[in-house]
Design a binder for these strands. Structure first.
Lengths: 159, 159
DNA sequence: GCTACCTTATAAGGTAGCCTGATAATATGA
DNA sequence: TCATATTATCAGGCTACCTTATAAGGTAGC
C-alpha cells in the first residue's frame, strides 16, 4: 500500500502500528517457546487468553469476543484443554453452560506473558522515557476508546 | 494472557497495540471491500503491498521481507496477477529475475489505502490533537528503530 | 562456450485455522 | 412438558502458509 522505501519521511501511522504489533507478538512467542510452551500458537494468545476473565469465561462469550464461530473457538479450547492450559468446568450460575478456566500450564504461561510485558515496558521506557511511553499508551487508548464508542453508536455492524 | 475485565487500571501497552492493529486492519479491509476490492484479503496488504517498492520488487525480496518462502509468495503474487493487481515483468538489471510491479487495480487499491490512512489520521487528530498524535507515532517509531537495531546487533535470529 | 550458480516457476502433499451446516445432549424457564 | 439456550461434535470446505523436489532460464567466471 505504502512505499517500503520511504524512509526519509516521518514514520507513517499504520506502519508503526503494524510493526509494533509484529514485534510484540514475535517476542512474546519467542519467550513462550523458550519457557516450554512451544505448543502454544499465536492464535491461542490473540483469541483465547486475551479474552479470558480471571474467574473463567463461557466458550460462547470467548467466541463472540474473538469474532469467530463457537465451533472454531471450541476447537481452540479443546486443544488447550488437552495440553493442560485450560479446563472446562460447570458454570455455577447456569447449568447449561460451562466456563473455561485456567489450568496449571495456562497460569504459568500467563505469568510468563506478564513478566515479558513488564520487561518490554521497562526496556521501551529506557529508550524514550517512562513519561513519553505512558503518554503514548494513553493517546492510543484514548483513540481506541473513541473508535469503540462511535462504532457502538452507529451500529456494531457485526465484525 | 491479561485480564479482559481489567478496565479500571490504565491501559496496558500490549493490549492497545493489538487493538489498534485490529482496528486499522478491519477498517482498511472494509474500505477495500466497499471500493470493489473484495478479492483482496488481509495477507495481500500485510505481506505483499506493504513490502512493494514503487519501482517494483523481486519476488524473492518480497518473500524475505514478509518472512515467508518464495513459493508461498509466488502463490500470492500469482493470485494478485490473475486479478489485475500486479504484473511480473523482466528485471531490467538482471535477466534471471523478474520484478513485481503495480498493475491498474493495484494502483487503485493503493490509492484507496492512502486516502483511508490520511482520513484515519485526520479523525484521530480530532480526538487527541495533531500534536499528541504525531508525538505518539514518533515514540512508537523510536522504540521500533531501537528494537530493530538491537536485533541486527545481537544476530538477526532468522525470520 | 562450458559450467556452476542464481532466480524463479511449478507441482505434490501436509498442516493450522478458520468457515458453514447438521445433529445431539443437557439444562433452563415458562 | 415443551420451547429455548448452550455446548459439543462431526462432516466437508477453503485459505494461507509450509517442505521438498524439479525444471527452466540467465549470469558470470574461466
Amino acid at each position: 500500500m505504502t512505499d517500503a522505501s520511504t524512509t526519509e519521511r516521518a514514520a507513517l501511522l499504520p506502519q508503526v502500528i503494524i510493526q509494533a504489533f509484529d514485534l510484540v507478538l514475535d517476542e512474546l512467542y519467542r519467550h513462550l517457546v523458550e519457557t516450554g510452551h512451544d505448543d502454544l500458537r499465536p492464535t491461542h494468545c490473540l483469541n483465547v487468553f486475551r479474552f479470558m476473565d480471571c474467574d473463567g469465561t463461557r466458550p460462547g462469550v470467548l467466541a463472540a469476543r474473538a469474532g469467530m464461530t463457537p465451533q472454531a473457538m471450541g476447537e481452540l479450547v479443546s486443544y488447550l484443554e488437552r495440553r493442560g492450559y485450560v479446563r472446562r468446568v460447570q458454570d455455577p450460575g447456569d447449568g447449561r453452560g460451562r466456563i473455561v478456566v485456567y489450568a496449571e500450564r495456562g497460569t504459568r504461561a500467563a505469568e510468563v506473558a506478564e513478566f515479558f510485558f513488564a520487561d518490554l515496558e521497562r526496556r521501551w521506557a529506557v529508550v524514550v522515557g517512562a513519561e513519553r511511553l505512558d503518554e503514548m499508551v494513553a493517546v492510543l487508548a484514548r483513540v481506541l476508546e473513541s473508535a469503540a464508542r462511535s462504532e457502538t453508536e452507529s451500529g456494531p455492524s457485526g465484525r
